[in-house]
């Protein structure tokens, strides 16, 4: 498959991981793979890796129960990552505080758009990043 064909293809990848600190790396890895396949450059891929990490952290903080469900959708020159958190135990409450503030600042600087998108009683968030070499 050529690079041009790849860029024109809509790709959707789903990932579901237990909320464990040493498994969040899988969310970054999937983001990097989808972005690389879509023709994103090294800088954009690194930005997306960090942004996806922060997206996950903004939902689960330091919790270690439940699952994170991620969908990576690449369409044209943009990737949208949507993430939901499904808790095993107590109802979810946002942690707030300094770490959340840092997460939001990082997200805001690295992606084109992001926001919260709860699915029923499950907290959710999303981000969207375009290739920086894409024409407006």
């Amino acid at each position: 498959m050529s690079m041009v064909e790849r860029k024109a293809t809509t790709v959707s990848v789903d990932l579901s991981i237990p909320v464990q600190a040493d498994l969040v790396v899988l969310a970054r890895l999937a983001a990097a793979t989808v972005a690389s396949r879509a023709g994103f450059g090294v800088e954009d891929i690194e930005d997306l890796r960090l942004a996806v990490e922060e997206l996950c952290l903004s939902l689960v903080g330091t919790r270690d129960d439940g699952r994170l469900h991620l969908n990576y959708e690449c369409e044209g020159d943009a990737i949208t990552v949507t993430c939901w958190y499904e808790a095993d135990e107590a109802p979810f409450t946002a942690s707030g505080g300094e770490a959340d503030d840092l997460s939001l600042r990082i997200l805001g600087a690295l992606v084109d758009d992001h926001g919260r998108n709860p699915a029923g009683d499950r907290p959710g968030a999303w981000l969207r990043k375009r290739r920086s070499d894409a024409t407006a």
Binding site: L50, E53, E54, L57, E98, A99, L102, S103
Partner: peptide, 12 residues
């Protein structure tokens, strides 16, 4: 090679 907000929190 990679550093996130958790690491920043530790340093702060």
């Amino acid at each position: 090679t990679f550093l996130d907000s958790t690491a920043l929190g530790v340093l702060v």
